[in-house]
Amino acid sequence: MTKEDLIQSNPLRALGLGEKTDGKNQGMGLVMARAGLGKTAILVQIALDFMMRGDKVLHVSIGESIDKARSWYTDIFLLTTADMADAERREIEPEVMRNRMIMTFKESAFGLAKLEERLDDLVKQDVYKPNCLIVDGYDFSDSKATDMQGFIDLMESRDLDAIWFSAVSHRGDKRVSETGIPAPCHEMDEMFASVLFINPETEAIKLDIIKCTACEIDASAKLAFDPSTMLISKT
């Protein structure tokens, strides 16, 4: 298996990742689930898809350490390239990982203004210019649609292709938007181009595509999520 095979066979292709929705960017994406179901694993698979295609990812981790974020990438990379020859994997790993930078913040210290400042720092010093932002651990319970608009503005002004977030939903909170986005993001419908929801059922965990502007999938195709490997698969 080559890198190109891996990109092509990635189940995330079903989400139309890499396609520009309005000619400018791919919009913002959201992965939702209850705590501990594997949101970070999915974000990392999305990030790795960008990285494999040569795009640069800035992984913003709120409340976690660099080492923890980094080990997610190491583990998911090993799992996704399990069918690849060792030599090939060794060759592409540094090439792929070069397309990732991790930025961690304490929960209390994170804010859009600070992120903008740090991002500009990277670009101005010619250190790193990301194409995609992954924001893991953002607290949506305290957030409004206007805050998300700030991120959309950031995406446009900094010429980013996409921003993907993770959000925690709560079993007891039954509020949902018209399109089915659960609380606490139910009032931000129009802010996201793609929304995935990790839906635990009795035997398997489904990955519901609640919203996907760029999707070209056939309606019957579903994504699943294997909790033992944390990998997304087609069903």
Partner: peptide, 10 residues
């Protein structure tokens, strides 16, 4: 150098 990451601490 390859920057692995940054950690904002206050």
């Amino acid at each position: 150098g390859m920057i692995i990451g940054t950690m904002e601490e206050g």
